[in-house]
């Protein structure tokens, strides 16, 4: 039991280099409700400018700097070299394969959130991509206009009114919060990949690192560009995370 908890916690701390640091993709479509006060033109942005609580700012800043440099000096150059020696069709295949393995998790969370039509669509996507798409290496479902519905445990927790908690920058992973960490644990435990890899932390870390490098190879320079106009990159990223979290609740 202790070993399992240890494994899971190691997994969580190392899980997914990819993810939020570059582009928080778990944002959900939601309508923007706009409240504009007539007498105060600055009010349009008031409600939405509220920041997450960040009691661990100094630690977070240190971890942010670490991640930032790790990305610029290790991830990007590695991904660049990797990109030069692999055809793009291979790299797309890798993305598709791993994304397909997340579909059962997505389906489960759609169900948990009462989105039954979406759950069915996700199931059909999984079926089509696993067969016609050769074990998920290809993504015929998307070409067939069956869109991917990104539902993870973090959104399920948000759906049931669980608050995010304080802002935390996780080493290697990037911006998160306690709800996000809970979500990652849930995602890992429902992922076939986790069991395929026998929950072996070393293998899991190796796989996640490869996945992250593969993913970065598609967005070389994007992170830098995103922050090129930032006066305080730490706050710029924190605010982007805040805005995504607010979308999550809507």
């Amino acid at each position: 039991m202790l070993m399992k908890i240890l494994k899971i916690s190691i997994l969580c701390s190392f899980l997914l280099f990819n993810g939020v640091m570059l582009s928080p993709n778990y944002c959900l479509a939601g309508s923007v409700v706009e409240v504009v006060a007539l007498d105060d033109e600055f009010a349009e942005y008031d409600e939405s400018t509220a920041e997450l609580s960040d009691p661990f700012e100094s630690v977070n800043r240190a971890v942010f700097t670490f991640n930032h440099n790790l990305h610029l000096w290790l991830m990007e150059p590695t991904a660049k070299a990797y990109r030069q020696v692999t055809p793009s069709i291979f790299r797309t295949g890798v993305v598709n394969f791993f994304s397909n393995l997340v579909e059962p998790t997505r389906m489960l969370n759609s169900l948990l959130q009462g989105r039954f039509v979406e759950a069915r669509d996700t199931f059909l996507r999984f079926l089509l991509n696993s067969t016609v798409g050769v074990c998920g290496l290809m993504d015929p479902a998307t070409y067939d206009d069956m869109k991917l519905n990104e539902r993870r445990f973090a959104t399920t927790l948000a759906h049931y009114g669980i608050g995010g908690g304080p802002y935390l920058v996780l080493p290697l992973y990037g911006p998160s919060n306690p709800r996000g960490i809970g979500g990652l644990v849930g995602d890992a435990l429902t992922s076939p990949l986790f069991y395929l890899l026998n929950a072996d932390p070393v293998v899991v870390v190796a796989v996640e690192a490869s996945k992250a490098i593969n993913k970065t190879s598609f967005k070389l320079g994007e992170y830098k560009k995103m922050l090129s106009g930032a006066l305080d990159p730490y706050i710029a990223v924190r605010n982007a995370f805040t805005q995504h979290q607010q979308q999550l609740i809507k």
């Binding site: 582009s23 928080p24 993709n25 944002c27 942005y45 939405s48 400018t49 920041e51 930032a230 006066l231 305080d232 706050i235 710029a236 924190r238 605010n239 982007a240 805040t242 805005q243 995504h244 979308q247």
Partner: peptide
């Protein structure tokens, strides 16, 4: 961009500074 408002993002950076 991707649900992140540029103005909001700048406001969060500028006010503390």
């Amino acid at each position: 961009i991707e649900n992140v408002s540029l103005v909001r993002n700048y406001r969060s950076q500028l006010s503390p500074i």
